[in-house]
């Protein structure tokens, strides 16, 4: 404990949201920030909102049931906020909307052989991606009302694919896998074929999750090897003189944060407002990292600035972390203990 509490950044516990039975796998904010969505082992999607204005307490607003037959692994809102996608161990991805006044599942994406681990919408809202233990990443296009067509089946990974995320601005898809690598894909405009354009290899075990920074020039990855890595893109003709074969951007690992996490790191979230990085770890702790002010852009330094150790932490593995889209420093986490917790990062200033 510091003698000057205001002088160091802290992660202040805000509230616990109880409801899930069994493990909570994932939390996700609505793009406008007025809804928080969580899912888990109980096959129920829970929507949480505030009671009486932005400052009020968060309470459960709605539950979405009967969409999946097995664990719901991840939930993801479309950029317009009208559609919610949920991926499940039952090998399907469900798309929910509120056109009828209440949330209903109006489309189901089928095709994966087994557990769908992750689902993500591209910025345009016209394309989404899913990935599965079947080693494939699928790209789906919104064909028409409630119709989704498979645009590509990518089998670049050699193992279980754990996570898919889209670049914040460009239609570039990144995936993380049990094969220890991260891969990037994009569509060749000449023939609409999706191809793997980069493989990021440096982790020594499963890469559980990845997150782009606001501009998409950097990517954070976290792994079963206990490290957090920061990757940076180098475009053709870059000043640093990094060679870019075939004119493709090259991703280089510019920082490895090791020795901080004591077990598997299951999730990473990069705040697009504050630049802070949050991690969810198998040692029950939520940690916050910040780039130092004098950091060299090509060899950046990230420091652990706060964690959930001090108070009201989760009692089991933390599986997911998500920064609020508009309130700086507001963070949600989900854990094996079944709880969703809200945290507020407070800077030293």
């Amino acid at each position: 404990m510091s003698s000057e509490p205001q002088a160091v950044p802290t992660l202040k516990f805000v509230q616990v949201l109880k409801g899930h039975r069994g493990r909570a796998w994932n939390v996700s904010w609505h793009p406008q920030g007025n809804l928080l969505t969580s899912c888990g082992e109980d096959k129920i999607i829970r929507l949480w909102g505030t009671e009486g204005g932005a400052e009020g307490k968060w309470v459960e607003k709605t539950t979405l049931t009967d969409g999946h037959e097995r664990t719901i692994r991840e939930v993801s809102w479309s950029p317009c906020g009208k559609y919610l996608a949920s991926s499940s161990f039952d090998a399907t991805t469900a798309i929910w909307d509120k056109k009828s006044g209440e949330y209903e599942c109006n489309a189901t994406l089928e095709g994966h052989e087994n557990e769908v681990k992750s689902v993500a919408w591209a910025r345009s809202g016209q394309v989404l991606a899913t990935c599965s233990r079947d080693k494939t990443v699928w790209v789906w296009e919104v064909a028409e009302e409630d119709e989704y067509e498979c645009a590509a089946v990518l089998n670049a990974h050699t193992q279980d694919v754990k996570k898919v995320v889209w670049h914040p601005n460009d239609e570039i898809l990144a995936s993380a896998s049990y094969d220890n690598t991260i891969k990037m894909f994009r569509e060749d405009p000449s023939d609409q074929e999706w191809t793997c354009v980069a493989t990021l290899a440096s982790h020594t075990s499963t890469v559980w999750s990845i997150a782009f920074n606001k501009t998409g020039t950097r990517l954070a990855s976290c792994s079963d090897d206990g490290t957090l890595k920061i990757w940076q893109v180098y475009l053709p003709g870059n000043q640093e003189g990094i060679s870019t074969p075939d004119g493709q951007p090259v991703w280089k690992c510019v920082s490895t944060i090791s020795g901080v996490h004591t077990r598997s790191v299951y999730d990473v979230a990069w705040c697009h407002q504050t630049g802070l990085i949050a991690t969810a770890c198998g040692d029950d702790i939520v940690r916050i990292f910040q780039e130092t002010l004098d950091s060299d852009p090509n060899q950046p330094t990230f420091n652990l600035v706060a964690s959930s150790v001090a108070s009201h932490g989760h009692t089991q593995d933390v599986n997911s972390v998500a920064w609020h889209p508009t309130v700086p420093g507001l963070l949600a986490s989900a854990s094996d203990d079944g709880d969703i917790r809200l945290w507020q990062f407070l800077d030293s200033s």
């Binding site: 089928e110 095709g111 067509e149 498979c150 645009a151 590509a152 089946v153």
Partner: peptide
């Protein structure tokens, strides 16, 4: 190719 077979199967179903 697989993606088109896949879409066809889903439509058929």
């Amino acid at each position: 190719g697989f993606r088109n077979i896949q879409n066809l199967m889903q439509k058929l179903k």
